[in-house]
Design a binder for these strands. Structure first.
Lengths: 247, 247
DNA sequence: TTTGGATAGTGTAATGATTACACTGTGAGT
DNA sequence: ACTCACAGTGTAATCATTACACTATCCAAA
C-alpha cells in the first residue's frame, strides 16, 4: 500500500459563499483574515474539513459557527484545486453557497464571527486565495438557481412587498434595464406562491405597499415538482414624465 | 504550522463518467477492477490526482489514457466526500463527465483500458465504491446539459439522420412517450444548426433517411450565446394502424 | 389645505411559441 | 405486386410572453 502513501499528503477545505439580501442589495458575508496567509485580506468563510466529517456537514458547521443558523439552504457548487492555490501545501476546496435572511442573522460568539461583515456582491474587491473566482462561480450558480426555485423564500424576511421581491430578482439577474413591473407581478402572482397578508407598509413617505408572505405548502410543492421563472428584462423604458430630479 | 498537520493526511481522486451513444442507447464506459478494493466489480474510470496536477488536468489524463481522446467535452459535476467511502483512508473524489463519439474511441495500450467496456446506462447494476451515486449525479447533469448545449455534436458521428438525433434526445431525456417527430424536427431544423448533406443512408430495408452534420460555426455561436432546447414529450400517441407485431 | 414627490397598483392587445395530430413517400425483400 | 419499415411533411388551436401608461395613495413641506 506504500505506493499510495504519496497521495495521502493533501488536505481539503470547505468555503462558503453566504448570500443575503438587504437594502435592495445582494450581499455576501466575508471574514477579515487575522492570520497568515493573506492576513488582513477579506476572505470567504471556510476551514479545513475534519478527518471524520462529511463535506456537507463541514459546510453546515462553518455556516452555523458564523451565523448561528442551521437548516438553511446550502448547496455544493464546485471544487477548486489548482496546484498552488494554498501556501501550506496541496489544498483543494469545495465551494458551497447558502442563502439566509439577514434579519435572522445574529452575531455569534465564535471568534471568527467577530471579523465578519456583509459586503455588496457588486462591490467586492480583491479577496484572499482564489476566492474571487469562487465567489463568481457561486454567484453564477445563484443566477441559475433563481430560475429553478423561489429563492425569495430563503432571502426575504417573512413579510415583504412585491417591489422588494422584484428588487431581489433584479439584484440577482442583473438585467440591464430592470424587469417590467406589470409583467413581473402578473407572473409571480399567477404562481399562487404568495399570500396577501392584508397588511400594508407603515411609515413610508408614499403610498404604502401591500405585504405578502410565501405560502409554505406551495413552496414545498415547487421544491418537488420544479419551478420555472423566466422573464426578459424590459426592452425599453416606458416614457416617464420628465423628472426634475438630477441624476 | 503543526496544528494543521492532521489535515494533510487525505487524498483525492478524480472519477470520470464517460458517456457515448450507440445503437440508439446511451452508454457509459466502465472498468472491471483488477485490484482490491472491490476487485472484480465494475467501476468508473478514475485515479488519484497527482500531487502536482490540477483537477481538470487529471480528469483529462484519465480520459486520454483510456480512450486516446483529448479535447473532448469534459465538465466537473460534483465532489463526493463521505467519510468512509474509501477503505484506504480519507479519500474524496471529484466527479467529471465527458461526452465522446464512440466511433472515435479506440482501444488504448494502457493496461487499464483493456478492462474497459461500454454499458447501457439504463442497465448498470451495482458498481464499486459510491459510483452508482456518482453516475446518477452525472446523468442528471447530462439531462440538464442537453437543454443548454447541442449535445449531439459531441455524441453523434459526423453524419447522422434526424431520427438518430431524436433517439439521442430520447435516450437522455427519457420522456415516457417519446418526443413528437414533427415537433422535434421543426424545432431542431429551425435552429439552423444542421447542414443537409444531400446524401442518404444506404443499405437499409426501408426508405433511406437524409444525412445531416452539425454546422461547426453555428455550434460555436451557440456555445457563446447559449442554447435552449425545450420540448414536451408527446402527450398521447398518434393512433397507429393496428400492428400485427406482438409486443 | 394645497401641492409635489414618491412609489403602488393595475389591463390589454399583439406577437410568438408550443402543442396536438395522421397521412403519403420510398426503398428493400419476398 | 405486395408488404414491411421507417422517412417525411403542415396546420390550426392554444398558451405564454411581451410592450406599454396612467391613476391611486400616502407623506411632507409650503
Amino acid at each position: 500500500m506504500t505506493e499510495f502513501d504519496n497521495y495521502f499528503k493533501s488536505a481539503f477545505t470547505v468555503d462558503n459563499v453566504i448570500f443575503g439580501f438587504d437594502e435592495g442589495d445582494l450581499k455576501v458575508l466575508l471574514i477579515k483574515r487575522g492570520e497568515e496567509p493573506y492576513k488582513g485580506k477579506w476572505a470567504l468563510p471556510g476551514y479545513f474539513v475534519h478527518p471524520n466529517e462529511d463535506l456537507d456537514r463541514a459546510a453546515a458547521r462553518i455556516l452555523e459557527e458564523l451565523t448561528g443558523l442551521h437548516h438553511v439552504f446550502l448547496e455544493q457548487v464546485k471544487t477548486f484545486g489548482t496546484v498552488n492555490r494554498h501556501p501550506f501545501g496541496r489544498v483543494i476546496t469545495i465551494a458551497y453557497f447558502s442563502l439566509i435572511k439577514i434579519s435572522d442573522y445574529s452575531l455569534q460568539p465564535a471568534s471568527i464571527a467577530k471579523k465578519a461583515q456583509w459586503h455588496s456582491v457588486a462591490k467586492v474587491h480583491e479577496l484572499a486565495f482564489d476566492h474571487n473566482e469562487i465567489l463568481d462561480a457561486c454567484f453564477q450558480r445563484l443566477k441559475w438557481s433563481v430560475r429553478l426555485r423561489p429563492v425569495g423564500f430563503e432571502l426575504l424576511p417573512p413579510k415583504f412587498t412585491l417591489t422588494e421581491l422584484q428588487h431581489l430578482y433584479e439584484a440577482i439577474l442583473e438585467p440591464d434595464d430592470g424587469l417590467d413591473k406589470r409583467n413581473f407581478r402578473k407572473k409571480i402572482l399567477s404562481m399562487n406562491l404568495l399570500v396577501d397578508l392584508d397588511e400594508t407598509q407603515e411609515g413610508v413617505a408614499h403610498r404604502p405597499a401591500k405585504l405578502y408572505r410565501f405560502d409554505q405548502e406551495k413552496y414545498h410543492k415547487f421544491q418537488e415538482e420544479g419551478f420555472s421563472f423566466e422573464l426578459k428584462e424590459s426592452k425599453r423604458k416606458e416614457k416617464k414624465r420628465p423628472s426634475k430630479l438630477r441624476v
